[in-house]
């Protein structure tokens, strides 16, 4: 299973980048991709962490939502940058996080960085340290909307 996924993703990636159609080159690609996939499975590189398959179906709804948040966040920063007086009041927040898998924690940390006025300073096992640009940003995080969505991604809720 892991081998098949590694092989298919490698081969697709290579083919999209190279766009080869000659049979000889395609066959070479197949052989090399199979070899690399076999090696990575043998070396234990292809595990749940590098192939978060169980998360993929749920990402379908999470990613568009996140993209909308990115647009909102950009509008927010654009407003701050272009208004005179620089209306910011930075704060550093320590926030307990109970996500079990590494994938969910990374997703959450990156989502925080992408969304309105907040940047993850440290993503620990149990606590995230977050730099917030202003009060609303901190409050938005505090409401826990994104946290619940990432939890749902993990399948905890």
């Amino acid at each position: 299973m892991r081998f098949v996924i590694s092989f298919l993703s490698l081969f697709t990636f290579w083919w999209v980048l190279s766009g080869q159609t000659a049979p000889l080159l395609l066959a070479t690609g197949v052989v090399v991709c199979a070899l690399v996939a076999l090696l990575s499975v043998q070396m234990g590189l292809a595990d749940e962490e590098s192939q978060p398959i169980s998360f993929l179906p749920k990402m379908v709804t999470y990613v568009p939502w996140l993209f909308w948040q990115v647009i909102l966040s950009n509008w927010d920063v654009v407003k701050i940058v272009w208004t005179p007086g620089l209306k910011i009041a930075p704060s550093v927040i320590a926030m307990p996080v109970g996500l079990k898998s590494g994938f969910a924690r990374v997703t959450y940390a990156n989502s925080i960085t992408l969304t309105p006025g907040t940047v993850t300073i440290e993503a620990g096992e149990e606590t995230f340290l977050i730099h917030a640009l202003h009060e609303e940003a901190a409050a938005g995080l505090e409401s826990g909307d994104m946290y619940r969505r990432v939890q749902r991604l993990e399948g905890a809720v």
Binding site: N74, V77, V81, L86, P90, T113, L114, H131
Partner: peptide, 22 residues
């Protein structure tokens, strides 16, 4: 512009990290 206007390193990361990616 945000990079130039923000007061310190951490606040500068906000315009740099968000606006540049979108």
């Amino acid at each position: 512009l945000g990079m130039l206007r923000m007061p310190d390193f951490y606040t500068r990361l906000h315009p740099a990290g968000k606006n540049d990616s979108l």
